[in-house]
Each structure stands twice: as C-alpha cells, then as structure tokens.
Amino acid sequence: MDTETIYQFISQSYWAKDMPRPLFDKALANSRCYGYVDEQGKQVAFARVITDCATFAYLADVFVMPDYRGRGLSKKLVKQVLDDDELQGLRRMMLATKDAHGLYKQLGFEPVLYPEMLMQIWQPGIYQNESEK
C-alpha cells in the first residue's frame, strides 16, 4: 500500500484533519489494513479495522480517491473487510460516518439500537492542538 497517498488523504479528511504522521504510522501498524490499487499501482481506495479479532471491531478511515468514485469500489472494499476470515464471529462491528449511511446499510450496518448505552471521550480538534505545540 502507498502509505504516503493514504496519509495525505486521511490527514485532510473531516475525521482526521492534520493528524501527525507518526500517529498515522502507529495507527496503521496496529490495524488490519485493506485497499485497492489501480493497474498502474496507484492507491485508489483504503480502509482499516481496529480489532481484537475475537469480539469487537471498529471500521475506520474508509475512502475512495475522487477520480475512482462511482465505480462500486467502496462497497467492494467494505465487503472485503466483512468477508475477512479473521473478522468472522465478532459480536459487534461499529463505525462512524457523516455521509455514507446508505452504503453501510446495504452491507448490514444499522443505527445503534440503544445509543444511550454508548459513551465517548471526543476530542475533535486534537490534531490541530498538537500541531500548535
């Protein structure tokens, strides 16, 4: 995988704007990564899963490069993740998205049944704050 291209996309995304490169590298090293490259070897899609490979997984950083959208790659990529032998039998897989609910619903994801059960520590500007230090 072309980690430089992946980093450039993710560090400009709404969910990880300005993520420092060392933190990105650490995230990839501790995740199951999936992706597609085109015939010329150009990275065109990516996803990663944070998991214990036994009970829980979190799908993150799913993207398709703009020039390759509308070809079904996102659906194919997420299907590849869901079909991974190491992720079978999990009790729960979660994700967060602002704009792709329709895609994930097609693949079996549903809104959280009891959202009041979930809690979080959320620091949306943490990467911008880090770069100011």
Results as ranks from 00 to 15, higher is better:
F109A: 02
M119P: 15
I126H: 14
Y34Q: 08
L113R: 12
K75Q: 12
Q43D: 01
L87E: 04
Q106G: 07
N129W: 14
D18F: 10
A45H: 09
V44I: 14
M93H: 15
K79G: 06
D25W: 08
Y36V: 00
A54V: 07
A47V: 00
D25K: 03
A57C: 08
Q8G: 04
Y114S: 10
P20H: 01
I121V: 15
F24S: 06
L113F: 12
T51K: 03
L118I: 09
S31Q: 00
E110Y: 14
L28P: 01
L113H: 14
S31H: 06
L95C: 03
R69P: 14
Q40M: 15
V81W: 00
V62T: 13
F109R: 07
V49N: 03
L90T: 04
A16D: 09
M1G: 11
Q80M: 13
I6V: 15
L28D: 00
I10H: 05
V81Q: 05
R32Y: 10
K75E: 09
V64K: 01
D18T: 08
Y127I: 02
L87S: 00
T97L: 04
V81I: 03
A16V: 08
Q8M: 09
G102R: 08
F24R: 03
L23Y: 12
G102N: 08
G108Q: 08
C53I: 10
V37S: 15
A60I: 07
R32I: 11
Y58P: 15
D84Y: 11
T97D: 04
K79Q: 09
A54Q: 11
A54R: 13
K75T: 10
E4L: 13
L107M: 03
L59I: 08
L118V: 10
L82E: 03
G70A: 01
S13E: 05
F24Y: 12
P115G: 00
K133P: 02
M1A: 13
Y14N: 13
M65T: 13
E116K: 09
E116T: 01
L77A: 04
G41L: 11
A47R: 07
M93A: 07
I6A: 04
E39M: 07
F46T: 01
R92Y: 11
A16H: 13
V44R: 09
K105D: 02
M117K: 10
R69G: 05
F9I: 04
L73Q: 08
I50W: 01
I121H: 11
